[in-house]
């Protein structure tokens, strides 16, 4: 494998005695599009929460582009180079679409002068223009000034991705970005993610839709009950007996049918 942008080593986390992440180790190759899949409750979102510092980890190490980020404060991790979207939409409901995207730029706008720059007064400033351009690239340019709480689910879901994207991270963590999107929106999302990846951003994507995973990702990591049970290519994944067992054990569907059913 080529060099890794993210290295996760023996990650452990338990919640009230329940071991939710159990000795998980994997690498995410620089510039790759990697999927993190697994049945419901496998611990995928928890991995993202541990990486981004939402919870402290019990044990293990995470190294981002050569920098140990295991114990740095959550607010500094986006500066270190990772940003994320959320499975349940976590946009700022009272901010407009453009303002939500400009929040994504926050880590890049350091220093007092940047903090006191009147983003909202000068319509033509580089931050706002960049945010609008990013929205346009995602096919969302019709709603810049609207308060996001008033927008439909599918739109909000994609604004999440744009907000995380404009942080210009080394690795973009996307938690079920295609969930709840119709097929046309999914297509657009797939295109956007490829464009982001073409600019050199590594993608780590949690997704239930196996068709989406197979067409987008080159590498797949499978979790089950907090343990890594598989790491390989999308073609290998549905032939793997342990993976089959994991999905059969829960809802008796192989991962690809599980995706189609969702």
């Amino acid at each position: 494998m080529s060099d890794a942008v993210l290295t996760i080593t023996e990650l452990n986390k338990s919640f009230g005695g329940l071991q939710v992440i159990d000795d998980v180790s994997f690498d995410v190759a620089r510039g790759s599009r990697t999927a993190l899949i697994g049945p419901n409750g496998a611990g995928k979102t928890t991995v993202f929460n541990l990486l981004t510092g939402v919870y402290p980890i019990d044990d293990g190490r995470t190294v981002l582009d050569g920098v140990d980020v295991t114990n740095i404060p959550a607010k500094d991790r986006v500066i270190a180079g990772m940003s994320r979207s959320f499975q349940n939409i976590r946009l700022m409901p009272h901010l407009s679409t453009v303002e939500n995207v400009m929040l994504g730029q926050h880590a890049r706008a350091r220093g007092l002068a940047q903090q006191l720059f009147p983003l909202g007064l000068l319509r033509r400033n580089r931050w706002a223009e960049e945010a609008r351009a990013a929205l346009e690239q995602a096919g969302l340019d019709t709603y810049p000034g609207q308060v996001v709480a008033d927008l439909p689910y599918g739109i909000q879901k994609r604004i999440e991705v744009v907000r995380a994207m404009v942080a210009n991270p080394k690795i973009l963590l996307l938690d079920e970005p295609a969930a709840g999107l119709n097929s046309e929106e999914t297509e657009e999302l797939q295109l956007l993610l490829r464009q982001i990846n073409d600019r050199g951003t590594t993608l780590l994507v949690v997704e239930h839709d196996m068709h989406f995973v197979r067409t987008l990702c080159q590498q797949v990591v499978v979790l089950n009950f907090g343990k890594k049970i598989f790491e390989g290519t999308p073609d290998e994944v549905h032939r793997d007996p342990a993976v089959k067992q994991a999905y059969l054990g829960t809802d008796s569907t192989a991962p690809e049918e599980a995706g189609n059913a969702a």
Binding site: V54, K75, R90, M92, P93, M102, A109, L119, L121, R163
Partner: peptide, 27 residues
């Protein structure tokens, strides 16, 4: 003016969801 700055954006983000604001680098 203050509300229109990036600091104002940070304030309003903290109001809406402080843990997400943190994850985007807001102190």
């Amino acid at each position: 003016y203050l509300m229109s700055t990036r600091f104002g954006l940070a304030m309003r983000s903290v109001h809406d969801d402080e843990s997400v604001a943190t994850l985007f680098g807001v102190n």
